[in-house]
């Protein structure tokens, strides 16, 4: 199964919210759509779900054009950011509703719901209303409902954003293995780069309704195609300074090292992260962040340098990567 989106665009009156977006996702791939809020990532997802109609472009599943197929007939398993569980129905009813509407027999409904309830460890909650569940349980019900849809592809709209940070980290591997096991194309919208890095096999960076870069998490990190991408990915944030008139140079904090012959700098602040620490240094290029292990001995006089070939150079006007 392949989901391919071809040059879709959506506008409100004259303003394009997204435009020229083309993405291809194959079976067993998790593509994370990553971008700041308002970049159009949810809009993209809604177009694929069929909840909104694109103003240009087409959407195909396995070569079949589904651009004008109503959402009821699209066979898309969607997990909403708010989970959108039906508040007046029990967990069991939430799961069986779609099956019965789509014409499953009572026998089939019984087998499939009990199977998914045990897979999701929700057997004890099956007669509870959604309001009685914890955030993690709600997420599992929403996911279970999407799985029972027998979808051709999965769409997940920030499914973790309603959970606290600890739970999010716990659930990530579980979610990843569960959706990878389905062996279907998965689109995962998030604004959290860690989540995208941890879950996705492919990251689509959106900015202002345009695709900035598509690549594996490693490619995106090591080879950002634009200034925006380099800034958006990586924590602590990448350092940047203007080296020449029309060029912005950027260097990752972990590439900076102490070097007696390097640029003289002064320590302004220090953040300790357990294994690592981040030093904020004032230099003639401006303030730079440097990341090193926490056992490293900080010299009295700090001089720093980095390998020239680890630098990224960007055109100041277009923000695009250039090679010098």
């Amino acid at each position: 199964m392949t989901l391919s989106i071809n040059n879709i665009g959506k506008r409100i009156k004259r303003d394009w919210i997204i435009r020229n977006i083309s993405i291809e996702v194959n079976n067993g791939e998790i593509a994370a759509i990553l971008g700041p809020s308002g970049c159009g990532k949810s809009t993209t997802l809604r177009l694929i779900a069929g909840l909104d109609k694109p103003d240009e472009g087409n959407i195909y599943i396995d070569g079949v054009d589904i651009t004008n197929t109503p959402p009821m007939k699209r066979r898309v398993g969607m997990v909403f950011q708010s989970y959108a569980l039906f508040p007046h129905l029990t967990v069991h009813q939430n799961l069986s509703l779609g099956l019965s509407v789509r014409g499953a027999s009572a026998e089939e409904i019984k087998i499939r719901t009990s199977g998914i309830l045990s897979l999701m460890k929700l057997e004890e909650q099956q007669n509870s209303l959604p309001s009685m569940l914890s955030g993690g349980q709600r997420q599992r019900v929403a996911l279970a409902r999407a799985l029972l849809r027998d979808p051709l592809l999965f769409l997940l709209d920030e499914p973790m954003s309603n959970l606290d940070a600890q739970l999010r980290e716990d659930l990530r591997p579980e979610l990843r293995s569960l959706i990878l096991k389905q062996n279907k194309p998965v689109l995962y919208v998030t604004h959290d780069q860690h989540e995208a890095m941890a879950l996705a096999t492919k990251i689509v960076i959106l900015n202002n309704g345009q695709v900035e870069q598509i690549g594996t998490p490693k490619e995106i990190y090591q080879n950002p195609s634009s200034y925006f991408v380099s800034k958006f990915i990586g924590s602590p944030k990448i350092n940047s300074f203007s080296s020449k008139e029309s060029i912005i140079t950027a260097i990752r904090p972990e590439e900076i090292r102490f070097d007696p012959n390097g640029i003289p700098s002064e320590l302004i602040a220090k953040e300790w992260y357990g294994m690592n620490q981040v030093l904020l240094l004032s230099t003639k290029l401006g303030n730079l962040r440097m990341m090193c292990t926490s056992d490293v001995c900080i010299p009295q006089r700090i001089n720093i340098s980095w390998d020239k070939d680890k630098e990224f150079n960007f055109d100041r006007k277009t923000g695009k990567r250039i090679n010098i």
């Binding site: 699209r74 950011q81 569980l85 779609g98 509407v101 849809r149």
Partner: peptide
């Protein structure tokens, strides 16, 4: 919330079913 009706759409419910259920 609009998502509830949209979730019902994704589940394959037509307009009458969405209203009723």
């Amino acid at each position: 919330p609009i998502e509830l009706e949209e979730a019902a759409k994704m589940e394959g419910l037509n307009l009458l079913q969405r209203l009723r259920v």
